[in-house]
Amino acid sequence: MNHRFLREIFIVFLNLLISDEPWANQQPPLPQEKWSFDQVFGTYDRAELQRGFQVYQQVCSTCHGLSHISYRHLKALGFSEAKIKAIAAQKEGKPSDYFPNPFVNEKAARAANNGANPPDLSLIIKARKEGPHYVKALLKGYIEPSVGIQLAPGMSYNLYFSGHQIAMAPPLSDNLVQYADGTPATVDQMAHDVVTFLAWASEPEMEERKHLGVKILTYLLVFTVLMGLVKRRTWRRLEE
């Protein structure tokens, strides 16, 4: 394999050097949404998290794993211990168990999904440019292809997917889930909620991080101002 592999790498490398757009698939700019977790003081909206979890569980989890998340982590969503126990029990698990993968291995996943391997969603928001905007746009981006575009059997056309041809069928439709809190389950609402949930799954430490950041930066600001004063005082001695 070594020679072919090397050659392939070299071709990739050459492409980088001299290419005429080997990656020529234009995506339109992503719609910019507002998120509860934006900005310095943004936190995850608990209701959105819980609804998003419901969407993940009832829709996404059929094909997509969430391997870095354990049931006990759901406490951060505002669920009680008893509720977490009940959620874990649905999949015959304990709160300390990690979410089970929907397929036993990659081959099984590909066999069941028209040759595509549905990516694990634990880090999906961090693993895409403009993650939250991108994932929401993708979930809502299914349109009829323009005339003349041939899709392979079983594939769908998505405005925001690289190359536009995507193996994931449109996952959301209005009222696909029945929200426990009675919120109308529009496609936009479900997409928004599940992205918030996945953003949490990508960065569960975010709230603690920002909280600690405000404290530490305040401390550093005081330290810096003090050092500025001490410095001025010390250097004044030189003028005398």
């Binding site: 920002k210 950041g213 930066l217 600001l221 050092m227 500025g228 001490v230 250097w235």
Partner: peptide, 24 residues
Amino acid sequence: PYYTVKDLLGLGVLLMVWGSFVFF
């Protein structure tokens, strides 16, 4: 104390920049 204190002042500024990235 002249440059120790000046370096500490610089350190404070640097840590603030660094911290802004780390936390936000």
